[in-house]
Design a protein around this nucleic acid. Structure first.
Lengths: 208, 208
DNA sequence: ACCTGAACACCGTTCAAGT
DNA sequence: ACCTGAACACCGTTCAAGT
């Protein structure tokens, strides 16, 4: 369908096309045959660049991590804030593909470079060894969980499965509901981010 | 293969069998045909109880939420701690199926009952309206992200994809690595849980 | 009401062949 | 080296038929 000129395939171009396809049509539409079609090539040509579909999905996950970029800001707190916000923006910009990141860790040099920059931010803040590792993990837990929830809220807003909770039976869910819509998630995210950074500020920098 | 007696199928029995199959053989082995075989029935019989495979997966996700159970403890802090720890235990007990929870929200009365009990815990602690909703979300972000990371760490321990980071190129990752193995995750989890509960204790109970 | 069996339109992946 | 085309062993799902 979409004809591309004879520019030969490479892993990056394939991964970008895969992300675009997942963004437009959803993860279940990301098949080797349909991706080949989008690139103007037979599906089997892709196997010359990726040994299996799982490796292609790893490359898309890596792409998302790289798109997040490295921490940016004056203080370490600002750098961590920027990283967390950029990760959230990835979830918002690529809700369909974002799920790849909850299942698979991007473990390639280009992804490692991003993680190393985050660790360096904690290192500059005085964390080291075990506490640096914990701070890194904690940030990962928070932005990972928040990203998933962001995606789930936005995606289920279109196709809600079972209907909302009955307010008579679940009054607290009914009371919480209005504060958990997509439009309210930014303030929840910032609230939690402040709490996380506050906890890190209060943490002794060296392992106990 | 596995013959079961003529006890007729129902949704709960199918969902339990689906969870057992995913636990034993992985999520990609959870196909309608193989699940039918495990139940001694043709695949098509399952469609009498679930309109589509997605609905079956929703039922498995619900099952995991129900297995988590309701908060248990003397203070609200203990109740939240017990909930978080039980969720983590679900991730550890069902690493293969746990991924279902990052992609789909269980939104059925039985799952709502669990959420309502968590909200009630925050309500007893004095939270209400927006701050109750935020506390609930924050807990969800944390235990969701921590659960995913727990699973990814344990699953990639068996089949690491790309090899570990080169210590010369990524010295901080090499330094953090020993603190991020499966055996160390409990202390990271408890550290973050303390931080979360501490932040909630310091939060004004009513919306500002 | 509940289950079967055959069929349809897809998948990922292999292999031998083309250039 | 890079891509094609046919084939294999699967999928989810439909439909008509059995009891």
């Amino acid at each position: 369908m979409a004809l591309r000129k004879k520019q030969p395939l490479d892993r990056d171009r394939i991964a970008e096309a895969a992300l675009a396809l997942a963004d437009k049509e959803g993860l279940e539409a990301l098949t080797m045959r349909r991706l080949g079609e989008a690139l103007g090539v037979e599906a089997m040509a892709l196997y010359h660049h990726f040994p299996a579909k799982a490796d292609l999905l790893d490359a898309v996950a890596e792409l998302l991590v790289v798109k997040m970029g490295v921490p940016d800001g004056a203080s370490w707190q600002d750098k961590i804030r920027s990283t967390a916000r950029r990760y959230r923006q990835i979830a918002i910009a690529h809700p369909q593909a974002f799920g790849l990141l909850s299942a698979r860790r991007a473990a390639t040099p280009r992804a490692f470079a991003v993680y190393e920059a985050i660790l360096a931010t904690f290192r500059e803040a005085g964390f080291e060894g075990e506490t640096m590792a914990k701070a890194f993990r904690l940030l990962g837990y928070y932005i990972g969980g928040a990203g998933d929830a962001e995606v789930a809220t936005r995606l289920s807003a279109l196709g809600g499965a079972g209907g909302p909770p009955d307010p008579a039976q679940f009054p607290l869910m009914a009371a919480a509901g209005p504060f958990l819509t997509a439009g309210r998630l930014e303030s929840v995210f910032e609230f939690g981010l402040d709490a996380l950074i506050g906890a890190l500020e209060r943490t002794p920098r060296r392992a106990v």
